[in-house]
Design a protein around this nucleic acid. Structure first.
Lengths: 244, 244
DNA sequence: CGTGCGGCCTCACGCTGCGTGAGGGTCAAG
DNA sequence: CTTGACCCTCACGCAGCGTGAGGCCGCACG
């Protein structure tokens, strides 16, 4: 009449392991219909059906807790759980794709830069990580678009120009020169020009960059040579330029 | 001279927690430069730098073990680890996108079918799950393309026609009619027609479907009303049709 | 000089979804 | 009676920490 199956039979029919069935029982997901005299688990058709549902939901990425909620409460939670699961997965995919993008960019750099040492590579990775933390995705895209617009050649020029300007500004600061003096104004104009080359005139990006320098003074100093004092001095000098 | 930082200072500067730093130490990732008399962990600039690297690599999704390998062994493993990580991530993205696709299809059905009860929904989910297990991705795409080509209206017609043909075949089997008789031949022709509507004449899909019926007789019987005996009978009858 | 509060320390369990034994009964066949 | 093949119940292990528990520093305040 009521056919009974042992754990291993059930396991074979569902593609699960015996251990998993034990686990599901412990998790309150599926209790055997009965036990034999020796304590063997015995399952019936109803349990098999329920298990099919469990397997299906698990294949959709639901957690055991979610599955229990869905099956126990029946209808109400299922639709909601489905929606939540979709939302979760969408976010996960987006995150992973961003991550993948970053990894691929790094791998690309590595392939282009021929034999690059680990230290340099890690520093580069660190830079992108910090950027990732301080700029929004839109801002990062804007920066990337800006870089594409400028072209690799111009970017190299800018990168060569920065140390010079920074050194000049540092020297002016060391000699305690008036930020309003003609010499410092000239430096500030170059500074502002290079900065705009990066920000593209986007006030938000400028703000985020300042925040980044404030949040990571040590790292930024190590990478750019700009410490908070120098930044303040240069900012003041640029501010004194007015709309000139 | 050599500035020393306490755990919580390091934690603040890196955005990690004190517990995480303890964990990294236990994992052999980052040992404090020294300890105070009271046993307090004391970190230096070098540790801070190393930790930046660790954070960066972690942000790229590397496991602590991988990170340790990368940082300890320096250059050699980093490139390889990067490539492996990219590969892993690509696979993960593909898997999750497939999953997302399935979930969205189900959600779509649910939205279309208005108020569908949980039982029916779970059965639908089960069907897609089993299909997923028995057909390759290419086959599933081919089936989907086939469905699009036929159109929703034709599919509904086919779905209405199947039970009728199955019932007829079942009746013929029950009466032990000769599979070669005119009546059964007529049934077999309709059966074959409906089947081709699904397979699109693809022998691989037909084979996989037979395998599915063999592997999941109970489920398939519950869903289609076709049991192994009936399937054998029908297959014989169809075979007897020849190239007719 | 005590005391209170914030850090710091070292265990150690918890979470997810089982895998993988350990140690020991059960059942049908030979 | 023995031998496999199954079954049982613990219980640890995995990754990466979170979150206490219980107790020792260290600095400031009264």
């Amino acid at each position: 009449m009521s056919t009974r199956y042992t754990v291993s039979q059930i396991a074979r029919r569902t593609g699960l392991t015996v251990r998993a069935l034990h686990h599901y029982e412990a998790a309150g997901l599926l209790r055997p219909a009965s036990r034999s005299d020796a304590g063997y688990r015995l399952y019936g058709e109803a349990e098999l059906l329920r298990l099919q549902h469990i397997v299906s939901l698990k294949a959709l990425g639901f957690s055991l807790a979610d599955i229990r909620a869905c099956i126990d409460a029946d209808a109400p939670s299922l639709g909601g759980a489905l929606a939540r699961q979709i939302e979760r997965l969408r976010e996960a995919v987006v995150r992973q794709q961003e991550l993948l993008g970053r990894l691929e960019r790094i791998a690309h750099q590595l392939a282009a830069g021929a034999t690059i040492d680990a230290e340099t590579l890690l520093n580069g990775i660190e830079a992108t990580t910090i950027m990732q933390n301080h700029f929004s995705n839109e801002q990062l895209q804007a920066i990337k678009a800006r870089g594409d617009a400028l072209g690799a050649e111009r970017i190299r020029e800018v990168e060569r120009a920065w140390p010079e300007v920074i050194a000049g500004m540092q020297a002016a600061l060391a000699l305690d020169k008036d930020p309003a003096s003609a010499e410092v104004r000239a430096l500030a104009r170059r500074w502002r020009g290079l900065l705009r080359e990066f920000t593209g005139g986007d006030a938000g990006i400028l703000q985020s960059m300042n925040a980044m320098f404030r949040a990571e003074p040590a790292v930024m100093q190590a990478r750019t040579g700009i410490d908070p004092v120098l930044l303040a001095y240069a900012s003041k000098a640029v501010g004194l330029l007015g709309e000139d």
